[in-house]
Structure formats: structure tokens, C-alpha cells
Amino acid sequence: MCRNIRTLHNFEPPATDDEVRAAALQYVRKISGSTKPSQANAEAFERAVDEVADASRRLLDSLSTAAPPKDREVEAAKARERAAKRYAA
């Protein structure tokens, strides 16, 4: 599950709220051990996703760096190249 959580800091354009929420959802799924909570746990699950997304957004907004922003397309191409090498065998 955690393979879907990607670095969201220092990209141009910045991470969207949807990307932050998707990462939060993956995190909560991983630590809860559930991809879809029962009805009894749905409210707690959604609240946790919201809280993790809020904390993640605050973190991303407060981080600073002197490094130039990364280009999403360049990073995606690098990831595809790594995957091609890894799965070539």
C-alpha cells in the first residue's frame, strides 16, 4: 500500500489538496490494516484521513528549501525508467 505515497515537497506546481489527501488515505489504510473500514469504523477512519491530510498540508506549507523545485514530468520519467529496469527481468 505505501508504494503509492510519494514525496510531495518541493515540486512545481505544488502538491494539490487531492494529492495530499490521497497520501493521507494510503497512510491511514496502511496503519489501520484496512482498505475499506467497516460501517462501525468508517467515521473514525475518515476523521483520521482528514486529520493526517491537514497535518500533512501544514507540514508542506511550512517547509522551506534552497533547492530548486523538482519538475513533475522529469521525476515521473525517472520513476518509469527505474520501474522498467526493475521489471525487465
Rank of each mutant, 00 (worst) to 15 (best):
4 N>W: 10
4 N>C: 10
6 R>S: 10
7 T>C: 07
9 H>W: 07
10 N>G: 05
11 F>K: 02
13 P>A: 07
13 P>V: 08
14 P>K: 15
14 P>C: 07
14 P>S: 12
16 T>I: 00
16 T>L: 04
17 D>Q: 15
19 E>A: 01
19 E>W: 02
19 E>N: 00
20 V>C: 05
21 R>Q: 11
21 R>F: 07
22 A>E: 14
23 A>F: 04
23 A>I: 04
25 L>V: 01
26 Q>L: 10
26 Q>C: 11
27 Y>V: 04
28 V>S: 03
28 V>Q: 06
28 V>L: 08
32 S>M: 13
33 G>S: 07
33 G>R: 03
34 S>K: 08
35 T>C: 06
36 K>D: 01
37 P>W: 02
37 P>D: 06
37 P>Q: 05
38 S>L: 06
38 S>T: 13
39 Q>N: 14
39 Q>M: 12
40 A>H: 02
41 N>G: 08
41 N>F: 09
42 A>L: 13
44 A>E: 06
47 R>L: 12
48 A>W: 01
49 V>H: 00
50 D>Y: 04
50 D>N: 14
50 D>W: 00
50 D>G: 08
50 D>M: 04
51 E>H: 11
52 V>N: 04
52 V>H: 06
53 A>F: 02
53 A>M: 00
54 D>T: 12
55 A>P: 00
56 S>Q: 13
56 S>C: 13
56 S>Y: 14
57 R>N: 08
59 L>E: 03
60 L>M: 01
61 D>M: 09
61 D>H: 11
61 D>P: 04
61 D>Q: 15
63 L>K: 08
63 L>M: 13
64 S>Q: 14
65 T>E: 07
66 A>C: 01
67 A>P: 00
67 A>S: 06
68 P>G: 11
69 P>Q: 02
69 P>H: 05
70 K>Y: 09
70 K>M: 12
70 K>R: 15
71 D>E: 08
72 R>K: 05
73 E>V: 09
73 E>S: 11
74 V>P: 03
76 A>T: 12
78 K>G: 05
79 A>Y: 02
80 R>N: 14
81 E>T: 10
81 E>P: 03
82 R>A: 13
84 A>D: 13
84 A>G: 05
85 K>M: 09
86 R>C: 00
87 Y>A: 09
88 A>L: 12
89 A>G: 15
